[in-house]
Amino acid sequence: MRTFVAGVIALLQGFLTTFSFFFKKKPTIAYPTIKKQHAPRFHGLHELRRYEDGKERCIGCELCAIACPANAITVIGAENAPDDRRSPGERYAARYEIDELRCIFCGLCEEACPTDAIVLTPRFEMSDYRRGSFVYAKDRLLVPPEAGVGRPPDERPNGIPADLGSVIEQKSTVDIETGYDATWRGGILKTDRKGLAG
């Protein structure tokens, strides 16, 4: 009899638990429409920066490729032509490819770079349909000239933003001050797949 009563009490406790959960706030974030703010130095998709005059920062030294623990980076440097200088130095990267499937997003390339050319942005939405599409060449890595020079990680909004962990609308991510534009590269990703697979 005692075990019966104890059993009934346990049963009611169980019902009470589920019922109390019914009214609790749900932690789910409706991801595609609502996005979470990342830390400013989140390691995401790479970006090749430019100087103010539009020249590429990368000088094709291949230090990033050497530093890369995953062998994800391929750099083939070339001499700058005197009448068409791509970078201020002698050399520039004729080809610069990162296999984002091999990349472990450790940020060592960023540290190795003597000109702060390669940086990791907080962009993380890189899904695609083909493996070849994950080999990002210069056309997708280099900051488009009209998009400025690209921010180095240190110059992104300092510290952890006050709204870290809180939920923000996708629209507000466009605002440079609060973070980053998660869909900025969307158009390029969808249209110009010029990786190794072509």
Partner: peptide
């Protein structure tokens, strides 16, 4: 919906 709410999920939406 009810099952989802009791399991701290939003359910079909």
């Amino acid at each position: 919906k009810i099952m989802a709410w009791m399991q701290l999920r939003p359910g079909p939406n």
